[in-house]
Design a protein around this nucleic acid. Structure first.
Lengths: 94, 94
DNA sequence: TGTATTTTTGTCTGATATTGTCAAGTATAA
DNA sequence: TTATACTTGACAATATCAGACAAAAATACA
């Protein structure tokens, strides 16, 4: 879980508690805990808020969050992942 | 819709009717119509069945179906798509 | 040790999204 | 027109998921 690992690392480096972040997000702390563990997914619109609270780049966090979502699509399709990504890149660059 | 376009093309080239395919899939024809138009998504386990009916390579169809799913994740994130895919590829090749 | 605090886990519920079905619509050809 | 193929929209059934709460587990520290 790229996104989860990143926000945990950021929070710990800043010596913040989960409840600081969850309060700033107006979110149940249990929920935030699950997001940080990768058990639940943050909503798209929460990413920039989290970035603000943790004082980091929103685009970087969003990129990791998107990458997680793509990894989930490719879950269990290891042998087709590479070819699939080729098709996607080709589609995007056109 | 890569997958949708492909199965339509395959079906038409074989002069098959939608109801032939939907019957073989034990599926409501309206549903198959929507899948072929890209309004609804085929289930993962239906892909090899469809490939069998249309006598084509299941892996190729599956690749297109996965690519559609990834495109949906990247929908509206055009400016981050490239970087995101880089992260995914890096993650996969490790 | 005991106690307070933080983090994690399990479960339930309401909201939201998805899927399957049906009926009615359009399009095309005979 | 009539028949056939395809498409669309509306609705109900179903599945999924965020959010909430309580309680357990882990951690810190007196």
């Amino acid at each position: 879980m790229l996104f989860a690992n990143k926000i945990r690392e950021l929070r710990e480096n800043k010596q913040m508690l989960q409840r600081h972040v969850s309060a700033a997000l107006d979110m149940d702390n249990a929920m935030y805990c699950k997001i940080e563990k990768g058990d639940r997914r943050a909503k798209r619109e929460q990413i920039p808020l989290i970035a603000g609270i943790l004082q980091t780049d929103a685009e970087e966090l969003l990129t990791l969050w998107l990458a997680d979502n793509i990894m989930e699509v490719l879950e269990g399709e290891k042998e087709l992942a590479e070819q699939t990504l080729k098709v996607v890149i080709e589609k995007i660059n056109r």
